[in-house]
């Protein structure tokens, strides 16, 4: 049984009306049509999905973008149902990496049901699929309680990657990537180049004296402490042949 979850911005924007109609027709043709639920400002997405799962839904399909996936990821992962995506509109990096084309073409991918189980990252108990970034990184990383990493450069950025073009989301680890500006050459002929450090790991703590901003799947979080971990092979997703992993 399938449940289709429409994000609010799709319902409000008239330019998606025709695309939605095509998608609904294609899903019916393929025999995978299901109940349609609509996200709204004061409607709890988690509660809605839990109700549907209790009624026997085994696949939750999100019509929207990365932000829509973020709203449902906790409940979908906890309830061990399969997650599908029909990407509509901008901000669909996750769908691209999973090899799912935009709009009506995604229906055929859903119908093929190529299911992969992937790792899910956590930051302060909050789950993420793709990764997170700290654009202005001046903190200390403690890795698996064994060693500390600091940047000796004034300009540095931190990125944690779980699912990315160069990161495997099925290996039980995430990658911590630090890009630090390093001066090369002498005197006025010197120039700054960014050098990339890569650490594959299972857990990581970020500590800072001043509050730092971190962007999780595009959303901002601010704190002086972040604990990052990984839940290996935790989320079942429908993917296409063109997936990056």
């Amino acid at each position: 049984m399938y449940c289709y979850l429409y994000d609010e911005y799709i319902q409000q924007n008239k330019r998606y009306e025709r695309e939605l109609l095509k998608i609904e027709n294609r899903l019916t043709d393929l025999g995978i049509a299901g109940k349609i639920s609509r996200l709204a400002l004061f409607r709890n997405a988690e509660e809605m999905i839990r109700d549907e799962i209790q009624r026997g839904v085994q696949t939750v399909v999100v019509l929207g973008n990365d932000e829509t996936v973020r709203k449902v990821i906790d409940v979908v992962a906890d309830c061990e149902v399969v997650l599908g995506i029909i990407p509509i509109g901008p901000g669909n990096e996750l769908a691209r990496m999973m090899g799912i084309p935009e709009g009506v073409a995604a229906c055929d991918i859903l119908s093929a049901r190529r299911i992969e189980t992937i790792d899910v990252g956590t930051v302060n108990g909050r789950r993420f699929v793709t990764g997170l970034s700290v654009p202005d990184f001046h903190a200390e990383l403690t890795c698996e309680d064994q060693f500390r990493i600091t940047s000796t450069s004034r300009r540095a950025a931190l990125e944690i990657r779980n699912l990315a073009d160069v990161a495997d989301p099925c290996d039980g680890k995430f990658e911590a990537v630090i890009r630090a500006a390093v001066k090369t050459g002498w005197g006025i002929f010197g120039r700054k180049v960014f050098k990339e450090s890569v650490f594959p790991m299972k857990s990581l703590a970020i500590r800072s004296d001043d509050p730092i901003s971190l962007f999780v799947d595009g959303e901002e979080m601010t704190s002086t402490r972040f604990d990052i971990g990984i839940e290996p092979m935790f989320l079942r997703v429908i993917t296409g042949k063109a997936r990056v992993f």
Partner: peptide, 17 residues
């Protein structure tokens, strides 16, 4: 993935203790 995910790189500008 295009790179070996098990490879660790400690580049210039980073200190590990």
């Amino acid at each position: 993935p295009s790179t070996n995910t098990q490879e660790t790189i400690i580049a210039q500008g980073v200190k590990v203790e």
